[in-house]
Nucleic acid binder design. Structure first.
Lengths: 223, 223
DNA sequence: TGTACTTTCGGTACGTGTACGAAAAGACCA
DNA sequence: TGGTCTTTTCGTACACGTACCGAAAGTACA
């Protein structure tokens, strides 16, 4: 009669004790004192387990006051999502899972806030959904690329000779890039998410405005 | 005396015959008639093998003429990268790998073209590198999320009831989204990459312009 | 109480990536 | 040729996720 709650509790215990990399179906089953395959009766697969953990985690993120311009609310909320994901090592394992967004639990307000912000700014609801979608893509990409680059234990050969994103790049074919010397190699250290996000949001909102100029979205009921 | 070229050839053979999902270190070794662990002398790990395959593939992408505005060159090149990655099933397995960009082989011109386009538009070289970086994040996110959503064999329970990105979303907490009815569920079918990319690029270029207004980048030599 | 059906449990087995270390083969020089 | 050192080969072993399927336990109805 092992319940979902007990499973998640045991998983958290395991993660706290041995680190989340050591979390495995087998170890979790052992921790619970049940057969390995029994776990599969409460959880579809490992991805599902991690998604459940994520829901639990997301439920604890408090909803802050977000006054200000719609645009600023969007940016602030996206940054919140980003920071939460970045602080959350096992997010990268499931970030692209189907329905990840739907597993945000209590934190669906993040999605709603972004969509509502876009509508308030003058987007149609359809455009607003796309605004969220693009922000999501960008955020996921940023998290995944950076997370992957970060978890490398400093390859013996190249002791972090610069931006891992570009490591091994054949610079002899890139005259325009090389023109700035080796400075570009060190740009990775900066946290570039805020700028990129701002640019994306600005671009999206401008795009929506020019697609339907001067028009305030009317939330018409569909079907 | 198994060479890298032979390994890659055998890998391609295996992929053509059984599909790339079936490609494994063990099967590849068997195909080559060598011991499994021998492969590890020519290839660091599986990720490295896939990156080698990617270099080979990328080398075959022809470099097109890209006239027009710098902005359009950037967008066109990014779209080319995106489409290549999307057409390339095993890209998702290594897309976030360190130095992926450096494994583009002959296709480094893609990186150079984007960086050069940004500089030609008035960005500083540092800004141009960031332009590429943000485009890369967005593209990777788009590819990974969509790739993951696509490879699901239509869950028995929910026969594709809409956008997999949002599946399971608690819409009762999203009044503004629900206001458009269920239409938002079907928006996923559209290819939204071009719009998002355009918005991102526009935003990035506008941001760079406002950071250093009216200034044309001077490619000063660094260090 | 007996019987049929459903839910829960878990042992075994397959295929995976790859760490480790021993063995074989090749290279080089005395 | 013999010895030493380096490169290449690969057998064994481990932990993993999980498909498959039989066993056990719980439930419903006769």
């Amino acid at each position: 009669m092992t319940s979902r709650a007990e499973i998640l509790e045991a998983a958290r215990r395991l993660i706290d004790r041995d680190g989340w990399e050591k979390l495995s179906i087998r170890r979790l089953a052992a921790e619970l004192g049940i057969g390995t395959m029994t776990l599969y009766h409460h959880v579809r697969d490992k991805e599902d387990l991690l998604l459940l953990l994520i829901t639990e985690y997301a439920d604890q993120v408090p909803q802050p006051d977000l006054p200000g311009e719609p645009r600023d609310r969007i940016v602030a909320t996206a940054t919140l999502i980003h920071d939460a994901l970045a602080a959350w090592p096992w997010a990268a394992e499931v970030l692209t899972a189907d329905g990840f967004v739907g597993r945000l639990g209590e934190s669906v307000w993040m999605v709603e806030t972004i969509v509502a912000g876009a509508i308030d700014h003058g987007c149609t609801p359809e455009q607003a959904v796309h605004v969220f979608r693009h922000i999501w893509y960008y955020t996921v990409g940023e998290i995944l690329v950076r997370a992957h680059s970060a978890q490398r234990p400093a390859d013996a050969g190249r002791p972090t000779d610069g931006d891992p994103l570009f490591s091994g790049l054949d610079t002899s074919r890139m005259p325009r890039l090389v023109a700035i010397g080796d400075r570009w190699r060190t740009l990775a250290a900066q946290d570039t998410y805020p700028q990129g996000l701002r640019a994306l949001v600005d671009g999206l909102l401008a795009q929506a405005a020019s697609a339907a100029p001067g028009e305030t979205a009317s939330a018409e009921r569909g079907e």
